[in-house]
Amino acid sequence: MDMEKLKQWMDIAKNMQGGDFWNNIFDQDFAKQFMDDQQATQSFSSMKGQPRQTEKAEERSFPIIDLLESEQEVIVLIEVPGVKKENLELGLIGNILTIKGTVVPIYPQFNITYSERFYGEFQRQITLPDSVNPQQLNAKFWNGLLFVSYQRTIEKGEIIPID
Score class of each variant (00 low, 15 high):
2 D>R: 07
3 M>N: 11
6 L>A: 11
8 Q>F: 02
10 M>E: 14
11 D>M: 08
13 A>L: 14
15 N>L: 15
17 Q>S: 13
18 G>Y: 10
21 F>A: 14
23 N>F: 09
26 F>I: 08
29 D>V: 12
30 F>T: 09
33 Q>A: 14
38 Q>W: 07
41 T>G: 02
41 T>H: 06
43 S>D: 13
43 S>H: 14
43 S>Y: 04
44 F>A: 11
48 K>F: 05
54 T>I: 12
58 E>F: 12
59 E>M: 04
63 P>Y: 04
63 P>N: 02
63 P>F: 04
64 I>P: 14
69 E>F: 03
70 S>G: 01
70 S>D: 13
73 E>H: 02
77 L>M: 09
80 V>R: 03
80 V>A: 00
80 V>Y: 10
81 P>L: 05
86 E>N: 07
86 E>L: 05
87 N>K: 07
88 L>G: 07
92 L>T: 07
92 L>V: 03
92 L>K: 03
92 L>H: 03
93 I>D: 15
101 G>S: 00
105 P>N: 06
107 Y>D: 11
108 P>A: 02
109 Q>C: 01
113 T>W: 01
123 Q>T: 09
123 Q>K: 13
128 L>Q: 04
128 L>V: 09
132 V>D: 00
135 Q>H: 09
135 Q>V: 15
136 Q>Y: 05
138 N>P: 02
138 N>V: 04
141 F>R: 02
143 N>C: 00
144 G>N: 05
149 S>W: 00
156 K>V: 03
161 P>V: 02
